[in-house]
Every structure is written in C-alpha cells, then in structure tokens.
Design a protein around this nucleic acid. Structure first.
Lengths: 135, 135
DNA sequence: TTCTAGTTTATAATAATTCTAAAGTAAAAA
DNA sequence: TTTTTACTTTAGAATTATTATAAACTAGAA
C-alpha cells in the first residue's frame, strides 16, 4: 500500500483533521490504483468500512475541498452524477456507457498529431480524449 | 436560410406535427450554423420568438425524440444541465468553462496518431476530443 | 362529424446537490 | 488544563434539472 501523508493532504486543502475527514482521505489516497467514484459510491464504501457516521454533506464538502486543492479531479462524463478521479495527472478515459464504468488511459497512450488553434483571445488549457465503448 | 423538411424531421422522430413541435423543429433546424443549447436556453428563445406557449415537458419530450431519431446529439460536458447539439456528424469541441460555451471542431481538424486498444470484449464506438480553454 | 390515439399542460415526484442552523469538536489562548 | 473561539458535523430543508402523472385538448382516421 502506498504511503501517503494524510495530514498533509488535509492541511493543504484547508481542512482540520477530523475523524471523518481522515477516514475519507485514507480511503481515497491510500491505494495503488486510481479510483473513480461518485459521492454516492464513496458513501457506500465508507459506511461499509468504517465505524463512524458520515453525513452526505460532509462527504460533499470534503471531496470538493480536495478537488479545489488539486488532490482530486473531476471527470467530464455526461449524466446526473458527478464523477471524481484520484488520478490528477493529465490523462484520458475509456467510458462504457452500459456499465457507467470509467477506465484511465495514460497520457502516453494517446498521440495527437493535429489540433486546431484556440479561438480568438483564448488559450488551450488541456486536451481530453474520451473513447466511448460498446460491446 | 437552409431549407429543411420540418414535417419529415417530425415524422421520422415519431412525432405528429403539432404547433409546438413545428416551432421547435423550425427553430432548431432552419439555420446554417450548428446550435448548442440546453432545454432552458431553448425555452428562452422559443418564448421570445413565438406566440404560442411551451410547457417545459413538451420541450423535453420533443428534444429527446429528436435525439432518439438522430436529429440532435448530446454533448459530453460535465455540469448539471444537459447540452444538445444540432451538429450530428462526428466532431469535437472546444469548451470554455468560464462562459460555458461550446464550439464545434470539425472532425478533419483533429488527427489522432495513436490510440489504445479497447479493453477485453469491448469495441470502440467513437472518440471525442475535448479541448478545454482558458483566457 | 365522430372517435381514438396521441399531445399539451400544470403540477407533483424524483434525484443530485447545496444550504442552514443547531449541536459538537479541534486547537489556540489564558 | 481549562476556556474560548472558530471550524465541523449533522439532519433536514431548499434548490435545480429532469421525469412522471393525469386531466383537458387536438390531429387525423373512420
């Protein structure tokens, strides 16, 4: 298991280390593979694993603070729920709309040869490639 | 102005040509440039331009029928509202998160040199490139 | 015409998310 | 260590986009 400084993650997100926040941070960041989740799925995992209670609002607040601090990213998927990703490097995604499953694609796996210029007065922030899957 | 067979669009979507549906179809399809919209923005435009009333549910139903029939596409943008696009060809998008504005990119403007294989038992349906903009 | 199946509409229901205000807690100050 | 203060958690209410419902309406077939 990857060793992570949980307190540092919390402090750098402007969060005091409370019981709930430490558990959320451990669950999200003490893992080797990247993790895709919605607030709902995260809540399910937390209530199974943990002894303490989590109000939904607490999970929302904590996840957003992590995102704001750059410890989580949000994935562009259409649909009602918001998807988060513990992989904060530039990368791409497979998306299986039948199972709503997201799979990371490392940046090096995709090479783009040609891309249009940004429109008037704008710059390119980043390029995301979405590969939609079917059976 | 592009000449479009509105009745054909409606019939092929399984919709009878009512007053409301004809107005919606004309507004969406009798134009030269592609149009990006949410149900809310479409409603605003319709109520300004038209004399007759539109219940939100009617707009939702009509837009979804057009989408199902392939006359509209839905754009993958995160956010609460669903974005639709009158451009139904395979294409890509600039997205300006500051203004929530979408701009079409023709498929020929993007060339991808390398792409990973689809995971086990899945096939690639399509590839969408999203170019996020900043100032 | 008359009839029937499909439509519109206002309103209620749902679902994800955000807000609120009271009770609880971490950490600084005394 | 106690007190104090500012931040947190929580349950539940509010909000927002969307979908469902059911009664009144209408296009088009008979």
């Amino acid at each position: 298991m990857k060793k992570v400084d949980i307190l540092k993650k919390l402090r750098s997100s402007g969060l005091r280390p409370t019981k709930q926040r430490v558990e959320i941070a451990k669950f999200l960041f003490e893992r080797d593979k990247t993790f895709h989740f919605t607030v709902e799925s995260l809540e399910n995992h937390l209530t199974k694993k943990s002894t303490c209670k989590f109000a939904l609002a607490t999970i929302y607040n904590t996840v957003h603070a992590f995102k704001k601090a750059g410890h989580l990213s949000e994935v562009d998927v259409r649909g009602k729920k918001t998807y988060f990703d513990t992989n904060i490097t530039n990368h791409h995604h497979f998306y299986d709309s039948e199972t709503s499953e997201l799979i990371d694609i490392d940046e090096s796996e995709v090479v783009i040869q040609k891309i249009p210029k940004a429109p008037n007065g704008k710059k390119i922030k980043n390029v995301e490639v979405f590969i939609n899957l079917k059976n």
